[in-house]
Design a protein around this nucleic acid. Structure first.
Lengths: 216, 216
DNA sequence: GTCTATAAATAGATAGAC
DNA sequence: GTCTATCTATTTATAGAC
């Protein structure tokens, strides 16, 4: 449960933000139809009527979340805005580049489990959040990593092949690992390994997998 | 929508099976709480009362699905029961082994999208299906592939490292690819590639990634 | 901004006739 | 095996007082 504050009179904006926050949490945990407005109200420590004062109906509340989430973060930080990653890309330090990509992905995923769950729910329920996310984030990620791979292929460092398939292979390792740890197998029954080890291993496997010269 | 048969009097068993089938479809599309018994009844072309004649309540219907799904298929076919895969494993044909694993995974995933969606819903909603699946299928898969990798490490063919992390890397590529194609990005906006190409590429990347000698 | 009370709609579940 | 009718509980949503 979240806050559950009682008898605290908030300003309209505060209450609005609080409700959004609570709704994100609850929707991400139990999905849209699995969450009741009653619960949201109780969690905020106010009556249901107040919830409907802030949001005309449940759908509007959901849409407010989408706007908020899709714009304000995304998955928080974009790799292409990370200075170190940018630098590693420039200097063509292949291993450090992919290792850092993996490590920062894991860190961000862990920071925003609620968002990841929301995304999954959204994808399953066919809401727009997941599509917006693909467009605003994943598509660019493919470009960002894909163009680096292309570059290194031109350098003669990586072997030939569709860069986007390579990207999918790499992202697959990352996303699947986070999804396992955070959603599917939080008890770590399949595999319990530190994010650092995972990042290092994945970077090495991937790099050896697409590089012309093998490095150990 | 499914069948929507009308005025057809079925035997008890037929009706029972039909309801299960419809419920799987609807639950997998909209989740448990997102599906109403009314809808199920309408879809089957009978009254709600009939649904409750077959299943005491909604939960029981859900459990019946779990039993049915978790036991009778799983994800249908187990790789360790596939003759060809078994043979490739014996003969240590590394590339063919992993390639075939990938290809057969994609084929099975595609055949059972409903089950995959059900699994995701189940994981998000915290039902037991996903846990059962992990135990009955994924855990064994880790063992199956992991032990092969161990073997090949002992042979001196694969480099050192935790076999289970290697497995995660490989399964990551496969699962992520299917999840993208079947659930997250069915329109193939990120990447549109044939399963054959994907399987081949993933097997090659992975194998070069963990092998001592590079092969192209 | 907040409440209580309540309406309206929908969901799950049952009774009893055929 | 099937229906109609109905009941109850829950959920969404509104009214009106403070």
């Amino acid at each position: 449960m979240i806050e559950q504050k009682e008898n605290i009179r908030m300003s309209g904006d505060e209450r609005h933000a609080q409700l959004l926050h609570i709704a994100v949490k609850l929707f991400s945990e139990k999905g849209f139809s699995g969450t009741t407005t009653r619960e949201i109200a109780k969690c905020a420590g106010i009556s249901e009527a107040m919830v409907f004062r802030h949001f005309a109906n449940k759908d509007e509340l959901y849409n407010a979340i989408l706007d908020h989430k899709a714009c304000s973060h995304g998955l928080q930080s974009f790799p292409w805005e990370d200075e170190e990653i940018h630098h590693l890309r420039e200097t063509k330090d292949d291993f450090a580049f992919f290792n850092r990509l993996a490590a920062s992905a894991f860190k961000n995923h862990k920071k925003d489990i609620a968002f990841i769950r929301l995304l999954l729910h959204s994808a399953l329920e066919g809401h727009e959040l997941s599509e917006t996310f693909l467009e605003k984030f994943v598509l660019r990620l493919y470009d960002f990593i894909g163009s680096y791979i292309e570059q290194r292929q031109a350098d003669g460092a990586f072997r030939d092949g569709d860069p986007r398939i390579f990207v999918r292979a790499f992202l697959g390792m990352l996303v699947h690992h986070s999804l396992n740890n955070l959603v599917l197998d939080p008890k770590r029954r399949m595999l319990d390994v530190s994010d650092e080890d995972a990042a290092e291993n994945f970077a090495r496997i991937f790099l050896n997998g697409i590089r012309k010269t093998t490095v150990r």
